[in-house]
Design a binder for these strands. Sequence first.
DNA 1: GTGCATTTGTTTGATAATCAACAAAACACA
DNA 2: TGTGTTTTGTTGATTATCAAACAAATGCAC
Lengths: 184, 184
Amino acid sequence: MDRRVEKSKNAIMEALIELMKEKDFDKITVNEIAELANVNRGTIYLHFEDKFDLLNYCIKTHLDQLFKQCTLGDDTSQSSPKSGMLQICNYLKQNIYFYQLLLKKRGTPAFRDQLLHRIQEMLQEQLNKSGIYQDTNNEILIQFISSATVGVLEWWIINSMPSSADETVDQLWELFEKIQVVGS
Amino acid sequence: MDRRVEKSKNAIMEALIELMKEKDFDKITVNEIAELANVNRGTIYLHFEDKFDLLNYCIKTHLDQLFKQCTLGDDTSQSSPKSGMLQICNYLKQNIYFYQLLLKKRGTPAFRDQLLHRIQEMLQEQLNKSGIYQDTNNEILIQFISSATVGVLEWWIINSMPSSADETVDQLWELFEKIQVVGS
DNA sequence: GTGCATTTGTTTGATAATCAACAAAACACA
DNA sequence: TGTGTTTTGTTGATTATCAAACAAATGCAC
């Protein structure tokens, strides 16, 4: 990708996030974003459909980073689903401000949706690998687990992570074991 | 000025300064600057003759900022030459790392020269205003005072500002009074 | 509602920055 | 000294960004 588009996109994304710290998403004007990003307003429309497209791209980029960083450890000895989840939690912790912002502020169910989708994909992959639960309806199972997981993560983030990452994942895994979706 | 050239120039300048913290000026390659600035190498040549031109521009920009900020207080009640010098010292203090870098590292007598020149201009203006010493040779006087002043500043900066700004300016002014270049 | 101001998307031509390639200069080193 | 490598400046073709202007849509006060 051309240096220029990368720089512009980054500046625009950062500007949006910065502005979202101060005011509601739909109170933010494209002009403000352009100004803070130090970019011509037209440049924003060059890369994004509109404000909403920009927000989605923003979220996507951050989730990309999260999942990339967390599957990066796959080549090490530790690559169990549980350690993957622990990595995710630790990454969330590092960027708590950003994720809290996206979950607390209304107007961004898009974030929850994308996160849910990612978790579902991750689970699907894990299930295919492990081969367990081959006989049951995977759709329902995935829906069940992913919703539960995202719910817990959502709670964990919004409440400023009252329990430690390890503790949280441990408890989560205990529940999984009870459902017998992971080896007890 | 076009947004793009400002952004590029700033990135390039910052990159050079960043690199000068680590290695000697003439060991720095244009490629490195471009890389760190995240700018095409050609872009550097678009704005600057070469490395040396860039360095001079760097220094000029920073001195511009210094003197602009320090003559900005002119509309307030305090605008005496002494308070001006105090402002300069305080500004130098704020950016000590940068100025120390330029004075300590060899290969940048350009900085001392530019600073001296600025001080001389400043003095010239002050002398024209006040009208004192009309009868003596202004050239020599300016040379004398500016050299002395820059010398003191140089010492002050290189030695990590061992005395406070007020203290330093007070002492400097005491000497000026002895030469009767300012009212005692 | 009516009018006024702001915001949105889009378009224009002009310009800056990009990449890739190049020859010449400077450098390293056997 | 000669040779291979790095760095330097420069070039040409292409793309991204710019500023300014515009009509349509939206919002807001009265």
